[in-house]
Design a protein around this nucleic acid. Sequence first.
DNA 1: CGCATATTTGATAGATTTCAATTTATGTGG
DNA 2: CCACATAAATTGAAATCTATCAAATATGCG
Lengths: 258, 258
Amino acid sequence: MTGVNFDLQPFVGLLTSRSRLSKIEEDALLALPTQQIEVNRHKDFVTPDQTVDHVSVVVDGVVGRFSQMSDGERQITALHITGDAPDLHTVVLHTDTYPLQALSNATILRVPHGALRTIAARYPAIAEAFWRHCSVDTAITAQWVVNVTRRDSRMRISHLLCEMAVRYEADGGTDVSFPFPLTQTQIGEATGITSVHVNRSVKGLAEQGLAFVADQVVRIPDWDRLAEYAEFDARYLQAKLQPGERLRIVDQASAKVR
Amino acid sequence: MTGVNFDLQPFVGLLTSRSRLSKIEEDALLALPTQQIEVNRHKDFVTPDQTVDHVSVVVDGVVGRFSQMSDGERQITALHITGDAPDLHTVVLHTDTYPLQALSNATILRVPHGALRTIAARYPAIAEAFWRHCSVDTAITAQWVVNVTRRDSRMRISHLLCEMAVRYEADGGTDVSFPFPLTQTQIGEATGITSVHVNRSVKGLAEQGLAFVADQVVRIPDWDRLAEYAEFDARYLQAKLQPGERLRIVDQASAKVR
DNA sequence: CGCATATTTGATAGATTTCAATTTATGTGG
DNA sequence: CCACATAAATTGAAATCTATCAAATATGCG
């Protein structure tokens, strides 16, 4: 990826997949000032307690947001891929920062809080789109709570794979495939199981022909079968919305006060 | 509580504890149309798949937001007390609804989506406050992921108790006490352990003198001791902010475009 | 080639679940 | 205010999943 210059298009694309924005608003987002950062695999590029003054937008690679225990154990609380803004919430909660780690080599665009606040104040529909983006984040996190409490190890991993497949827009049909650079230790950090047990569970999923996780890639022979096994229901991800389903509340209701 | 008429003051108070709102904006919030509902303990008052057209604001009692598994098992993904709006996110994600259950007898004020969208469109600082409220919700949910994966049963319960103590503004010092109407089965549904094991863990916490959970009330003899045991760090809850720490981004940055 | 990281395997220990019953509260109608 | 039905809390024993400990084998990279 060296030498390539990225813009915010992936981020804007993700926002507009769920929110209705005008051309002017899209252009304003694309004109935001950015600082491009290349991050090597396994590198922490945001550390806790440092008060950040910018948001990190992932434009290439995979990033993990995590919490750290006193004994050094890590729990990954979210995965982020191209287009995601793992800490967009810091625009309104500047003290609530989480460490971010690159799980593959990654490219990040840093966008200053100041510029984001300005654009959110000037274009209410953009503030709304940011709010919606954060709300989907909550829905995903709530599903993780369910995942790690109510499913055994194989189902946990399967559910995680289903989530990522949908977010990569790779779900459905046969021979689904998408990048998945997590080590088995990191899969354990995301699903709450030890790396030893991840190893056995991954092997078990392969034996069952449900999913193959290796070489930083996931292959799913039969999507429906894995989704059923994992009890996966994609609705919470708000993916594949039709244009008519994309909300824009800021002017839809501005007239009537009731 | 029969016969008592509630208003949205608890909700407004929670919003203004983290967001800076003008008197006009506060009054606009208090003038929102509401429908008061009394809900008996253990009753589901929002069920999944029903497209809701209103937000539920808790003004009395305790409410649980949960997900249901195919085998009927429930996972509680959040607890909500007076002032909380468990499904405020449905203002921007109308399809992302979760079942809500009263964990004690509770009083709910229903606020129509239409009115909330109107007020959010008219007062950007209110939209911002809503966004912030949802973002704190995410922070809490992310902590739950950590709680249920990285702590043993006693610590999980302890951490949950610490969270609720802070939200009740009852934390600190000795002999902390606050309402906690969950059955042991529901504590298990919140922390990912069986009711049998909750029973033993609760007893264990009592033996250690760390916390006493009984008769729908929690008593904590020594706050610092329990917080240390649970590895609890309250910062993520954004409680007890000084007035100067409460953000208002919508006009703070509206001038400079940079 | 050789160190560091990642994956794999085996054996054992432990925490938690499951299953089954019993006891103890709580609430309601007569 | 008691009797009954129901819900909640409690206890015991056995079964499981997962963690832990320890080591061997791959893999990647300078």
